[in-house]
């Protein structure tokens, strides 16, 4: 009698909870198996289409070694007309910067022309305060970088959102610095 109440009070709850945990984990592992490739494919496709949007003329983007570039630069790509073309049409850098939302809360892609000027920028992620810092992703702010070189002459921050603007413009500056490093490497 006593034995059965111990079983009922302690063993059963633990067994049931553990079994449920196991079944749930198993089900998740199976789902993960099926969705993981799709998620990876979709991510690649998104990155490709974002790059294509920035440099429409190019159709091949070769990933470059990002070591030695500013630490905020996560990825670097060379844009070419085709995979085996020698001529590089421009570079694309994925840069993450620290805003209010923590490091990486502003993540952008910067396309740099071969003359060292910004061709276009695109926001990949913006975790800044809605209606305030989030305005750095609006065309009014983003489009001003087009044609700028690394002096960022004529740059205007979004008023009332200095820190988010600083994160964004800093990311653009990092991309231009990364371009310089790559270009020097190529010249030598």
């Amino acid at each position: 009698m006593k034995n059965s109440s111990v079983k009922k009070d302690f063993i059963m709850p633990i067994v049931v909870l553990s079994v449920i945990c196991l079944i749930v984990s198993g089900a998740l592992a199976v789902t993960n198996r099926f969705t993981a490739p799709t998620i990876a494919d979709a991510a690649r496709l998104r990155a490709d289409s974002a790059m294509h949007e920035l440099i429409p003329d190019a159709s091949a983007f070769t990933e470059l070694d990002a070591t030695g570039l500013p630490t905020n630069v996560i990825e670097a790509y060379a844009a070419k007309e085709s995979d085996d073309a020698k001529h590089v049409d421009g570079y694309i850098f994925t840069v993450s910067a620290t805003g209010y939302g923590g490091s990486g809360s502003v993540k952008i892609m910067v396309a740099v022309n071969t003359d060292g000027r910004v061709k276009a920028t695109k926001t990949l992620a913006n975790g800044e305060t809605k209606g305030m810092g989030s305005r750095v992703s609006e065309p009014d702010y983003e489009s001003q970088f087009v044609g700028m070189d690394d002096t960022l002459t004529g740059y205007n921050a979004v008023s009332g959102a200095t820190i988010s603007s600083k994160a964004y413009s800093g990311a653009v500056a990092d991309a231009l610095a990364a371009y310089k490093i790559l270009n020097q490497g190529a010249a030598q």
Binding site: G102, S103, K107
Partner: peptide, 18 residues
């Protein structure tokens, strides 16, 4: 969840401060 979000890359100290 926010402290370990991949796009934040907080260090342990930063996560604790957050």
């Amino acid at each position: 969840i926010a402290n370990v979000a991949p796009d934040r890359a907080y260090t342990f100290a930063e996560a604790m401060m957050n």
